[in-house]
C-alpha cells in the first residue's frame, strides 16, 4: 500500500519518484540504517535495499563487490529483516528488497514473504525470477499485501509486456538497456521508447533503472518515467567512504539531494 500511495501522492504534486538502491550490510548494517534515514531526509521517495547474493548475475562489478563485502561481514536474510523492523520504528518510507531467487527459495518462499511483510517490507524485486516461474510466490505475496515487482526490458515482446502488465503490482521495473547494472557514460536512447510502449498497456507507475548514475541522466529519465532507480553510483560512494561513517552519510545525502533536484521540478506531465 505504501508504494501505491507514494506514487499517487507524487503524481498529485507533479513529481517523479527517486528510488535509490543500497546494499544492506555494506559497509555494515548500522550504517545502512543511517543511510536510509538520511536518503529519506534528502528526498528519496522509495528505498531499494539489497539482500546480498553470492552470484548476482544481473549485476555489474560495483554491485557484485558490494554484495561480496556485505556477505563477508556476515549479512544474511534474518539480519536484513531485523534492519527493516528497526527502520519501521523510525520511518514510513516504502521499502523494497532486491535480491535473487535462491535466498528467497532457500528460506522457504512463503515464510520469506510473510516475515518480510511483517517486518515492514513493501515490495520484493528478483531479477532472476521471470513471470513464468512466479505463480506460487505471487499468490502468497498477494495474501500478505507485499508487491512482487515485475521487470520489463528493451527485448520484451508485446506479448510479454501485455502479460506482465496484467500481473504486475506496485510499479514495473523497466530496464533501460540490455545489460547488467552499472555506471555508464551515455544514457540508453531506447529507454524512452520502452516506457512509451509499456505505457500503452498499463496505468501502473513505471520506474526506470540500470545505467542511471548522474543527476543529468536521472533528470532525463524522469521526463518520461514515473520513477528513477539509481544504484551503482551510490554504491561507488559507499565503497569510497565506507570506512568513514559520518562523511559517508553526508556524501550519500548530498548525492541523493542532487538527484532529487534533477528528478523533480518542471516535469508535471509524465506523459510528455
Amino acid at each position: 500500500m505504501r508504494i501505491k500511495e507514494k506514487f499517487e501522492n507524487l503524481k498529485k504534486k507533479g513529481e517523479k519518484a527517486l528510488i535509490p538502491f543500497i546494499m544492506a550490510g555494506d559497509p555494515d548494517l548500522e550504517t545502512t540504517e543511517r543511510l536510509v534515514l538520511e536518503m529519506e531526509k534528502r528526498g528519496a521517495d522509495i528505498i531499494e535495499l539489497g539482500l546480498p547474493f553470492s552470484d548476482p548475475l544481473a549485476d555489474g562489478p560495483v554491485i557484485q563487490q558490494s554484495s561480496q563485502r556485505s556477505l563477508e561481514k556476515g549479512t544474511r536474510t534474518p539480519h536484513v529483516f531485523e534492519l527493516v523492523k528497526r527502520l519501521r520504528e523510525k520511518t514510513d518510507i516504502p521499502l523494497v528488497i532486491l535480491t535473487y531467487y535462491n535466498p528467497v527459495f532457500s528460506y522457504g518462499q512463503e515464510i520469506f514473504i510473510k516475515e518480510a511483510a511483517q517486518a515492514g517490507v513493501d515490495g520484493l524485486v528478483m531479477p532472476d525470477l521471470p513471470l513464468e516461474e512466479r505463480d506460487e510466490l505471487e499468490e502468497t505475496a498477494r495474501e500478505t499485501g507485499l508487491d512482487l515487482i515485475c521487470f520489463l526490458a528493451p527485448t520484451s515482446s508485446r506479448d510479454r509486456i501485455n502479460k506482465t502488465a496484467q500481473r504486475a503490482r506496485g510499479f514495473i521495473y523497466c530496464v533501460s538497456l540490455t545489460g547488467v547494472t552499472g555506471v555508464r557514460e551515455e544514457f540508453s536512447p531506447s529507454a524512452e521508447n520502452l516506457i512509451k510502449d509499456i505505457r500503452k498497456h498499463t496505468s501502473l507507475p513505471l520506474a526506470l533503472g540500470f545505467g542511471i548514475s548522474t543527476p543529468r541522466q536521472a533528470g532525463k529519465a524522469a521526463r518520461y518515467a514515473d520513477g528513477v532507480i539509481v544504484g551503482s553510483a551510490l554504491m561507488k560512494i559507499i565503497d569510497k567512504y565506507g570506512e568513514n561513517g559520518d562523511l559517508l552519510v553526508q556524501e550519500v545525502g548530498e548525492f541523493v539531494a542532487s538527484l532529487k533536484k534533477a528528478v523533480t521540478g518542471q516535469f508535471s506531465d509524465y506523459r510528455l
Binding site: 526490458a153 520484451s156 510479454r160
Partner: peptide
C-alpha cells in the same frame, strides 16, 4: 529445471 534468468534474456 525451468528458466530463472533476467527478463532481458527471456525472449532470446
Amino acid at each position: 529445471g525451468g528458466r530463472f534468468v533476467p527478463e532481458v534474456l527471456m525472449p532470446a
